[in-house]
Simulated scan of single mutants.
Amino acid sequence: MMKSSKILAGLMGLSVGDALGVPVEFQTREELAQKPVVDMYGQNCWSERPGT
C-alpha cells in the first residue's frame, strides 16, 4: 500500500508542475526576469485557460 501511495503522489506532483509550467514554456530566464509569473493565467501557444 505504501508504494502505490508514493507513486500516486509522484504522478500528482508531475501533473501540477506541468500545469503550472504552461505560462513559462519556451521563455528564457531573461524574459521571465522582466515579466515574472505572479498569478495563474492562461496564454502562450496553447491558449489554455488559467489553472488548466
Rank of each mutant, 00 (worst) to 15 (best):
G51S: 10
L8V: 12
E30T: 06
K6E: 14
D18I: 15
Q34D: 09
M2K: 13
G42N: 03
W46L: 05
E48M: 15
L20Q: 10
E48N: 15
N44V: 09
V38I: 11
S4V: 08
V37S: 07
K35S: 14
S47K: 11
L32Y: 02
K3T: 08
L32D: 01
C45K: 13
A33G: 00
Q34C: 07
T28P: 05
M40I: 15
N44H: 10
V16W: 12
F26V: 03
A33F: 03
M12L: 15
E25Q: 02
E25G: 07
Q27T: 07
E30R: 02
Y41L: 01
K3A: 08
A33E: 09
M12N: 13
K3N: 05
V38P: 00
S15G: 11
V22R: 12
T28M: 06
G21P: 00
L32R: 01
W46S: 01
V38Y: 02
M2Q: 12
A19R: 14
M12S: 14
K6V: 12
G42V: 02
P23L: 03
P50Q: 04
R29F: 11
Q34M: 09
Y41F: 15
D18R: 11
Q27M: 10
V37I: 14
Y41S: 10
M12E: 13
G17N: 09
V37W: 02
G13E: 03
L20W: 12
L8H: 04
D39V: 08
S5H: 06
V16K: 03
W46K: 03
G17F: 03
A19L: 07
P50K: 02
P36D: 08
G42E: 01
G42C: 04
